Simulated assay, not measured.
Amino acid sequence: MHALKKCWIAAALCATLGAAQAQLLVGQTAGFTGQVAAGVKEASDGAKLYIDMVNAKGGVNGQKIELIALDDKFDPKLAAENARKLIEENNVLALFLNRGTPHTEAIIPLLDKHGVPLVGPSTGAMVLHQPVRKHVFNVRATYQREAEKAMTHLASMGITRIGVVYADDSFGADGLAGAQKGLVAAKLTPVLQEKFDRAKPDFAPIAAKLTKADAQAVLIIASGSSVVEASNAIRGAGSAAQIVTLSNNASTGFIKSMGANARGVIVTQVYPNERAVTYPMVKEAQDLARAQGLGDISPAMLEGFAAAKVLVEGLKRAGPKPSREKIQAALEGLRKFDLGGLEVSYSPEDHTGLDFADLSIIGTDGKFRR
């Protein structure tokens, strides 16, 4: 009897410890090193702000969120392998905040095979919106919407000689499609439309052509260091064309990497001004960042913060014993969820999330200005 009683006590203790240590495993694969490292770090820091706050308050339904993050060095093949490990070996409930268009495309077969939802991919590729990807839940507007808005803005300023330089991958092609929509709407033809090898870019001949074409502005659809290299080549060739790029470069790290060429660059944005405290989400992120001594937040941090809010809401609605299937169903049932001034809605037929798009310019103080 005494031995039996000890077994009961041990079992009760194990159950108690199990409940206390229960964790909600979420996986992330992104380029923590390589050409997009600055933006990835800031987006991840923004997500961590919210997740840490939720965990400090007891987690979700009494369980804390554990984010397992793997570096894919911005390589689509490595992204797919990381996703496989996270899904099949770590048994994560969901994937979260990965980075890159070809990278997300490489992950999708695994999502579909195992029924794993992916929340907040850090890419605005239209291919992730239409047709609907069953397990992909976007939290940001499309690159096409951004590129179209940029072209419309340039045309409204009387700029007619516009060049487009884009990476030779699915991301570049997607942004190009949006730029073409904007150019057609403005009844303009690009003076230059050039693609480059993402793995081994050579911008000198492109910069020479851009200068010869006397371009007044150029949209560079590329990531991180490629935009820096392209800008250096363009300025080195003597061109004063207005440089424009998309929100995948909306990070403080990108501004620093641009150096002297940062001033005056137009960067499209998919979230409100990071200093606009009239948006409750922005104020919440600012307050949490300051409480942790992080200082100012960036647009990239806001992207991660918003994605984390959607992830946490999905976990909450999935109940005390969440599964991949329950999280999928919870997210598809999300209607008019208030992030703090912006609403997100999903359905089985629509996984777009937000449609917010804006423009910013990098000021002399090295900050984005609206």
Rank of each mutant, 00 (worst) to 15 (best):
H2I: 08
A11W: 10
A15S: 15
A20W: 15
L25D: 13
G27W: 00
F32A: 09
F32M: 07
F32S: 02
T33E: 05
V36M: 08
G39A: 12
D45C: 06
D45K: 09
L49R: 00
Y50H: 14
D52G: 15
D52T: 04
N55S: 08
N61H: 14
N61M: 12
Q63K: 15
K64S: 15
L67H: 03
I68F: 15
I68P: 07
L70C: 04
L70Y: 14
K77L: 01
L78E: 01
L78H: 00
N82L: 06
A83E: 06
R84A: 08
L86E: 03
L86Y: 05
E88F: 03
N91L: 10
L95R: 09
N98T: 02
H103A: 01
L110I: 02
D112M: 02
G115V: 03
V116K: 11
T123S: 11
G124E: 03
A125E: 02
Q130D: 10
V132P: 14
N138F: 04
R145W: 04
E148K: 11
E148G: 13
A150Q: 09
T160D: 13
T160R: 15
R161A: 15
V165W: 08
V165M: 06
D169H: 00
G175M: 00
L176I: 03
G178W: 02
V184R: 07
A185D: 11
A185T: 03
P190D: 15
L192V: 03
Q193K: 14
E194M: 06
F196R: 00
A199P: 02
D202I: 07
A204Y: 04
P205I: 10
P205Y: 13
A208W: 10
A208V: 12
A213P: 00
D214L: 03
G224V: 01
S226A: 09
S231M: 08
S231G: 14
A233E: 00
I234T: 07
A241N: 05
A241P: 13
Q242L: 11
I243R: 04
T245N: 09
N248V: 14
N248F: 11
A250L: 06
T252V: 00
K256P: 01
K256Y: 05
S257W: 03
A260R: 00
N261A: 02
V265S: 05
I266D: 00
I266N: 04
V270D: 06
N273V: 04
N273Q: 10
R275F: 00
A285C: 14
A285S: 13
Q286L: 15
A289T: 09
R290T: 14
G295Q: 09
I297D: 00
L302F: 12
G304I: 11
K309D: 07
R317E: 10
A318T: 12
P320T: 13
K321H: 11
P322I: 10
P322H: 05
P322Y: 08
S323D: 12
K326C: 14
Q328S: 13
G333V: 14
D338A: 15
L342S: 08
S345M: 07
S347G: 06
P348R: 02
E349N: 14
D350T: 01
A357H: 03
A357S: 06
D358M: 12
K367E: 05
R369L: 03
R369C: 05
R369E: 11
R369Q: 05
R370W: 10
